[in-house]
Design a protein around this nucleic acid. Sequence first.
RNA 1: CGCGGGGUAGAGCAGCCCGGCAGCUCGUCAGGCUCAUAACCUGAAGGUCGACCGUUCAAAUCGGUCCCCCGCAA
Length: 310
Amino acid sequence: MKIVFFGSDDLAKENLEALIASGQRVVACVTQPDRPKGRTLQLSSPLPKEFALKNNIEVFQPLDLKDKVFLERLRSFEADLFVVIAYGRILTDELLAIPKIFSINLHTSLLPQYRGAAPIQWAILNGEVQTGVSIIKMNAQLDEGDVIAQKIMTIDREENAVSLKEKMKNQSPPFLLDTIQNIERGEFCFMKQDHDKATFAPKLTKEMGRIDWTKEAHVIHNCIRGLVPWPNAYTYVESKMLKILQASVVEMEQLGGVPGEILAILKDGFIVRAGRGALLIKKVHLESSRLMDAKSFISGYKMKVGFRFR
RNA sequence: CGCGGGGUAGAGCAGCCCGGCAGCUCGUCAGGCUCAUAACCUGAAGGUCGACCGUUCAAAUCGGUCCCCCGCAA
């Protein structure tokens, strides 16, 4: 099939790669404009762009999706299908109407749950034990289109947003290819989403990462797991921000101390009291320093039992 | 010219302001104590103080140039 691909991140790039490898005719790739990135503010390209160019696929990075010239160029490909994965913008009806069959979107949740920008992270933040990927027929409303296929995936107890996304990068391409083949053969149906059951996964914010040590240990743990690699769960050591990148919930019967206090220092980390339960902190990243294991942090900064994080 | 922190033993840091013996916690190795141990005691190994240039009797420390890492902001 003739496909126009829309996507901007690493998950998109994996799927684009799989589409091309499978022999589908990807005729164009639409992605976000290059943006300044990093400390040096150097312009950087979305991952799918690089990949598309290497494969001699025409790349579009429109600022305005209603731009007449852009729309005309897209029409001129006479594509069968638009495939949209983490493109980062809502497509208009006019755009969605261009392909001969329709436009599909691969979304990283079991819709109607977790519509929006950060479904992977929110599933973990809420302590879900399963999530998945959905392929829907797109309409102009955000993640509301009819479901064509879904794949369920489990979330392990120690899974974090990075490892879960990695799983999806591995498992979504075959799922996407199968689904496209089914569409090609006409072997598919639409399942309406139950809009009453819809939940939302809005963009993450920096503030969400601030650890409230009076919360239950597993809630803080979900925050640590769900907010990597950005914005991360963090607390403060005096005036310096300390990101906590990896931890596990510790079952302890009797807890002394107050929330945020270091209760013990062990070989593989240190234990901090939460509102209920405690956490074994394993990996941290102190402001201005680099990522380090918790034991190194304790060694270098002379942390002692009884120290209290704020 | 966006703001800021940093590079010192295998890891993490102090020392720099005010130049004068290379330090701390952890790890490693050897030995001791112990019913035992991740605890405790004794000892040891391990360094181009990011690189180069300059100042000085003397530079981790002062001045200059460059390289690399990180946080914020975007």
